[in-house]
């Protein structure tokens, strides 16, 4: 589903690479936590998967496509297979909940009929059935993040990328969001979540990939936030 092969990402502004020779593979339907300190390369990883950036070295395969060979004009089409959620929600403040979710379908040219059916469905799934006509500022943080998740999954993407989706939320609200993400994962969507939230990672007991200074130092099935055993799979980890 996602394969990184000796991927290095070097930004021109810094001497140290953001990602250093990362090799890993994520399979269909997996739920993966990406942990590590700020600046460890988590966001760079997600941006590379989205092809917002190109790697300095190495190859990235996503959904059977080698991103290096993907023409720029085909990137929009490629991104329709990916959903993204951010810490700061990124909703459009002047649009209602319904319009925010519908917007992402309108701009990829979905029909009105499809939108009228798909948006209420997905709002029901994220638990916002009665709030379609509210505006983002009338909602709580958790509810806003649910809108963002609804927007990310309404087009039924194969992969959901979440960059610290619970970063702005209190623990109980976060738990609700995690339940939702888990439900999305069980329906077959690959979920990759970058997070600092140790409690969530420990509780969920899913695959954990830990990055330190751009290198994979741990890749553990059913791991916790803290290193329990150093069981490195894949190369590129030479600490």
């Amino acid at each position: 589903m996602i394969r990184f092969d000796q991927v290095t990402k070097q930004y021109s502004s810094s001497a140290r690479p953001a990602l250093n020779s990362v090799t890993l593979e994520i399979l269909k339907g997996e739920f993966v936590f990406l942990v590590g300190a700020s600046g460890s390369g988590k966001s760079s990883f997600l941006r590379l998967v989205l092809k917002e950036e190109n790697p300095s070295r190495g190859q990235i395969h996503v959904l059977g496509q080698e991103l290096g060979r993907l023409a720029n004009r085909k990137v929009p089409l490629f991104r329709r297979n990916l959903g993204v959620v951010f810490q700061d929600f990124r909703l459009l403040p002047q649009k209602t909940v319904f319009a925010n979710v519908a917007f992402s379908l309108q701009v990829i040219g979905r029909s009105k009929g499809f939108i009228q059916e798909a948006v209420p469905d997905v709002l029901k799934m994220v638990g916002l059935a009665g709030k379609a006509s509210r505006f983002p500022h009338e909602l709580s943080g958790g509810e806003q993040q649910r809108v963002a998740i609804a927007r990310a999954i309404v087009n039924r993407p194969a992969i959901l990328l979440a960059d610290e989706p619970t970063g702005n939320l209190d623990p109980s609200t976060s738990a609700g969001i995690m339940t939702l993400l888990e439900r999305i994962s069980t329906s077959g969507t690959t979920v990759i979540m970058a997070t600092h939230d140790a409690g969530i990672v420990d509780q969920m007991q899913r695959r954990v990939i830990e990055l330190v200074s751009g290198q994979v130092v741990r890749d553990e099935r059913q791991g916790g936030y803290q290193t329990q055993s150093i069981s490195v799979t894949g190369s590129g980890a030479n600490l």
Partner: peptide, 17 residues
Amino acid sequence: RKELGIMRLVGASNRFI
């Protein structure tokens, strides 16, 4: 720019934008 960012994220074609 916010709309544009979201459009690009969800895969709106360049021509559409």
